[in-house]
Amino acid sequence: MEHPILFISIILEKLGLPIPHGPVGHGLIEQLTAPYMTYTWFTMIFLVVVGKLTLGNLEMVPGKGQNFWEILIGGMDDFFVENMGRELTDKLFPMIATFALYIAVANLIGLIPGFMSPTSSINTTLALTIIVWITHHIIGIRANGLAYVKHFLGPMPVLIPLMLPIELISNFARLLSLSIRLFGNIMAKETLLGILFMLAGAYFAPLPIMVLGVLVSLVQAMVFVLLTVVYFTQSNEHAH
């Protein structure tokens, strides 16, 4: 999709780096300077710098910044514990919380003119989903050993030839549905905003869509995290 103005791309172009005109270029540098890559790095730098600035010196009586993070991290911790138990949360909290923060910020920066959401590229969401998908199999194998295969064999031995393909297909469908839902929602938001800016940007036409965009961004981040938690819980428990 043609984006109106992307600040990082313009800065890089001024520095003499090649900027791909399509979604992905051919050379290595072109692939590294694709907009979704540069904005992924921007999101990462933003999260690290904000975290460093607000949590640089921890205090017993928290200030404004530390208070915000304590509520956010504490809320997420409670949510995960409620859904998948203390033990699994302690193991996986850094990963899932990072996903939550990254996806939420990545979705939201697309609302600022001149920025784009890295999650509006299928590459980013598919990468996140593959990590989740492989991790939930690793959790299953570590928790159940070889008995993890029973998850895919259905309730009765007679039904194995029928249930095995069905279970495998529905497991691979997780890979597809998790990535495409996040990508589709955010890409739709970005495209709609771009078109409305182009058509009637001077009359504030994109404003209602931006309000909806905030909602969609946060809800999609939450849904991604919730589904991750559900998958981890399911692969961790014993087969029925």
Binding site: A173, R174, S177, L178, I180, R181, M222
Partner: peptide
């Protein structure tokens, strides 16, 4: 989270 991905999972 639970009902929102019914459609996508079915199609996928």
């Amino acid at each position: 989270g639970n009902y929102g991905h019914i459609g996508f999972t079915f199609v996928a």
